[in-house]
């Protein structure tokens, strides 16, 4: 048996025993690469996700809502920071990850390629998008790679607060005037299907699932997670008095789950490939912020270098 195979077996044994893998531990190259891909995509989703919600900060309807939304979007920037740091432990820099995002080589969650057209969309995103994200992320708190799992514990706490905040916005609208109810229903109509798409392709078409389950990156399949989300969310929509835009949705007593209609997979793949309603605008905004900020980052580096030289001169004379 070659030493490499032996290492892989030992590695798998550690994962099977529920041990966490730490950055300095030996790991298969594919494990490292998969994690860099997944964690950086997750980080990119956090910072691109700031844009659709940021779109309503200046127009939030009350001071309380404005402060809530600002704080939420700021939390997302914070999540981006932890996640980039977690990915950096695997030997890639934040600048390299940004470069992959800007060149379209790295993906981010497709949900953020949909526009936010009314204030109710801010409620719907908190309720549905953060709700879907939590289902994925709670699973990831038990993932095998230590830094990722720990980042998730912290992120999940904040995300569940965001989800409650989103639901509370929806509740306010549902109890409000006819115009407010219509606004809430319209937001649900537009965000329902894209939220279901957040769990990815059907298991039969998800080639990474098997390996990911083995490495405990995934502990449940896309279809299992999607079903879990639907089962949790349908009663929440009923409580709001809103209608889920799926005529095939109904409780299946035998399965103990809701049956639901077919997702438009053509739309899913089109948005993934970059042809969604806002892909170009979202990526354009990130590239623009990066390019416009280049002189600021250069100046900060130059200033820090100057100060180091001065400090070392001072310490030499002292």
């Amino acid at each position: 048996m070659s030493p490499e195979i032996n290492l892989e077996e030992q590695f798998q044994a550690r994962i099977d025993a529920g041990e966490k893998i730490e950055p300095k531990d030996w790991m298969p190259e594919k494990y490292r690469k998969t994690h860099i891909r997944q964690i950086s995509q997750h980080a990119h989703s956090e910072i691109v996700g700031m844009l659709p919600e940021g779109n309503w900060i200046t127009r939030a309807p009350s001071l309380r809502r404005k402060v809530g939304l600002l704080a939420k979007v700021q939390d997302e920037a914070g999540h981006g920071l932890y996640l980039y740091s977690a990915a950096e432990t695997l030997g890639i820099s934040r600048d390299q990850m940004f470069d992959q995002l800007h060149k379209g080589k790295a993906k981010y969650s497709s949900i953020f390629n949909y526009p936010t057209l009314s204030w109710a969309d801010i409620g719907a995103i908190g309720w549905l998008v953060d709700g879907a994200a939590i289902i994925n992320q709670v699973m990831l708190t038990r993932t095998s790679f230590g830094p990722y799992a720990r980042a998730m514990v912290r992120i999940c706490k904040e995300e569940s607060f965001h989800q409650r905040q989103g639901y509370e916005i929806m509740l306010g609208l549902a109890k409000g005037t006819l115009e407010q109810k219509e606004m809430a229903q319209d937001a649900l109509n537009r965000f329902w299907w894209p939220s279901l798409m957040m769990f990815g392709p059907r298991d039969a078409e998800s080639p990474n699932t098997e390996q990911s389950v083995k490495w405990k990156i995934k502990r449940k399949t896309n279809d299992e997670l999607r079903q879990q989300f639907i089962d949790i969310t349908v009663p929440q929509a009923e409580y709001l008095g809103l209608t889920i835009p799926d005529p095939d949705l109904k409780w299946n007593e035998e399965r103990g789950h809701y049956d639901f209609g077919e997702i438009d997979w053509n739309e899913f793949w089109q948005v993934v490939k970059g042809n969604g309603p806002c892909n170009k605008e979202r990526l354009g905004a990130r590239v623009n912020a990066w390019e416009e900020g280049a002189w600021v980052r250069d100046a900060a580096m130059a200033y820090s270098a100057k100060n180091k030289t001065q400090n070392s001169k001072v310490s030499k004379t002292a």
Partner: peptide
């Protein structure tokens, strides 16, 4: 608040949003 998500780095983005939050807290 107009700058939220568009700063030159994540750290400055967070800091400026934080200042905006403080200012709106004072306004309230």
């Amino acid at each position: 608040s107009e700058l939220c998500g568009h700063g030159p780095s994540l750290e400055t983005d967070i800091a400026l949003t934080n200042i905006s939050l403080d200012l709106f807290g004072q306004v309230r």
